[in-house]
Every structure is written in C-alpha cells, then in structure tokens.
C-alpha cells in the first residue's frame, strides 16, 4: 500500500517537474524552432509549432548579410583570451594563498572579492576615455583586458577553493622524498589541480561570453562580439524574427552546452565558495 502511493507520488512529481521545466525552457525552444521557419511562417497566426517547412535559409542569410562569423570569432577570442590571461595571473596567486598562507591571506582574498562589487558604471567614464585616448576602443585587446580584470576575482576565488582541497600532507610527503619545488609543482600539484582549473576555465568562458555591459559600451563594429551583434537587432528593418532566431540560436548554442557541463562549478564559482 505504502509502496504504491510512493510510486503515484513519483508520477505526480515527474509530471509537475517536466511541465515546469518545459515551461521555463520554452522561450529557448521557441527560438530554435523559429530559426528554421521562413519569415512569414515566423509571424503566422495562429503560431506554427512543428508543422512548417523546415529551412536553413536564415542561417545562410544571417552569415551573408552581417558577417556573422566575424562576431562569433570576436566572442571566441575575447572570452577565451580573457580567461586564459586571467588563469595565468590567478594560478600563481591562488596557489600561494592556498599552500603558503600568510597572516594577510584572508584579507587579500576578501579585498579581491570586494573589487567585484564595484558596479561597472562607477568606472565607465574613465575607462571609456582611457580607451578612446589609447586607441583601445572597439578592439579585441581592449575587451580582453577589461574582461580579464572584472573576472579575475572570481578566477582567483574558484582556484583558491579548489586548491584548498588538495591535502597539504601530500606536499610534505613529496618534499620528504626529496622533490624540489619544480617537480613538486609538475608531478604532484598539477595533476591534482587540473580538474579545478578546467572547471574555472569553463565557468569563466561562459561569464565572458555573456558579458553585456562592457562589450556593448566599448565596441562598435570591428570588435563587436555576439552580445553586441545581437543588440543590433533591436532596431531592425522589415521582417526579422526568423533571422533573429537563427542568430540567437547560434550565439547561445555553444555556451548552453558548456553550461550544462558546468552546473556544479557554477554554484561554487558564483557564490565564492559560500555554497558548495
């Protein structure tokens, strides 16, 4: 009897959860579906769900008309570039804070975190002017610099929480066996640190890919990544739903897939280790 009611509960929960899940996912699904319609079908009344002539025309047209892949490439360079530079700076810092903590380590960590709390508009004007005067406006280099700096605190923090979990005794043991600092890093630490570094890399590519304050304010045409490219659809000409959908689908697809792989890291990274 009890067993049967348990199973009924499971059915109810399954139905409810799937209904809510599909409802939340629906705007994305609808965007993907619309990207395969013609412009006329995209605004058909009543709306067409699956019964339309599937076409890839929009994808071709988005690329042809607006050089989509240049913006895509900008996004790749900016998000990957800022993440790699960030890791290069953050790995030594997080390593030393986790393994050779000093009296000030906690203060330094908290202070780094506090820089993340600085609202971007607080420094918008000077950054804009500095960029204008140094020719960094609308360049990928400029965006790599800014995105590296705004994500650096998150990178340091994530790495720190991962490194902290590597037991210090292992280092002691390696040292006892006569391992020098270098072989300690290469043979002992690196293999244990790689998963944490990979997660950090993943989350930060996602954050940089979707960053939409600096990318919108500091780029025009040349260096515009996908966030800024998509924004150009806010004042379109003629029918554009299907093309908007195709451009959007291409812009979110790679990051959506990466995001699904990094669910757990997301929690740790964005709560600065406060929730694990």
């Amino acid at each position: 009897m009890a067993r049967k009611s348990f199973n009924m509960n499971k059915v109810y929960f399954t139905v409810a959860a799937w209904a809510v899940g599909l409802l939340i996912f629906f705007p994305i699904l609808w965007t993907i579906l619309t990207s395969f319609k013609t412009e006329a079908e995209a605004i058909a009344s009543p709306p067409l769900f699956l019964g339309f002539d599937w076409t890839l025309e929009n994808y071709a047209e988005v690329q042809e008309r607006s050089d989509y892949f240049r913006h895509f490439w900008n996004s790749v360079v900016i998000s990957l570039g800022s993440t790699l530079v960030g890791l290069l700076i953050a790995i030594p810092a997080a390593w030393s804070m986790a393994f050779v903590p000093g009296r000030r380590t906690k203060d330094v960590l908290m202070w780094m975190l506090s820089t993340k709390m600085l609202p971007p508009v607080g420094v918008l004007v000077p950054i804009y002017l500095i960029f204008r005067d140094t020719g960094l406006l609308d360049t990928r280099t400029g965006l790599v610099i800014v995105l590296t700096l705004i994500n650096l605190p998150i990178i340091v923090w994530m790495l720190y929480t991962y490194f902290k979990e590597i037991p210090g005794e292992i280092l002691e043991a390696a040292r006892m066996d006569g391992a020098g600092l270098w072989s300690e890093i290469v043979h002992v630490l690196t293999p244990m640190a790689v998963p944490g570094i990979a997660s950090t890399l993943l989350l930060n590519i996602i954050l940089a890919w979707n960053e939409a304050f600096w990318t919108l304010n500091l780029t025009a045409a040349t260096a515009a990544p996908l966030t800024a490219f998509i924004a150009s659809y806010s004042s379109p000409e003629g029918l554009f739903y299907a093309k908007l959908s195709a451009a959007s689908t291409m812009a979110i697809a790679p990051i959506l897939v990466m995001g699904w792989f990094s669910q757990k890291q997301l929690v740790r990274g964005l709560t600065f280790g406060a929730v694990k």
């Binding site: 799937w18 939409a212 966030t227 924004a231 739903y241 908007l244």
Partner: peptide, 25 residues
C-alpha cells in the same frame, strides 16, 4: 534532463533573452 531544462536560461546572453522576449513573446 529537467534540471538541464530549468537552468538553461542562465546561459542565454542578456541581449538574446531580452530581444527574444521583446519580439517573439
């Protein structure tokens, strides 16, 4: 799978989600 469906919107860039909601909804 449900969890994947539910967390998906977080990975959609702000300009895409705003324009999709504005126009298509």
């Amino acid at each position: 799978i449900v969890r994947i469906l539910v967390i998906a919107p977080f990975f959609v860039m702000p300009t895409v989600s705003a324009l999709v909601w504005k126009n298509m909804f």
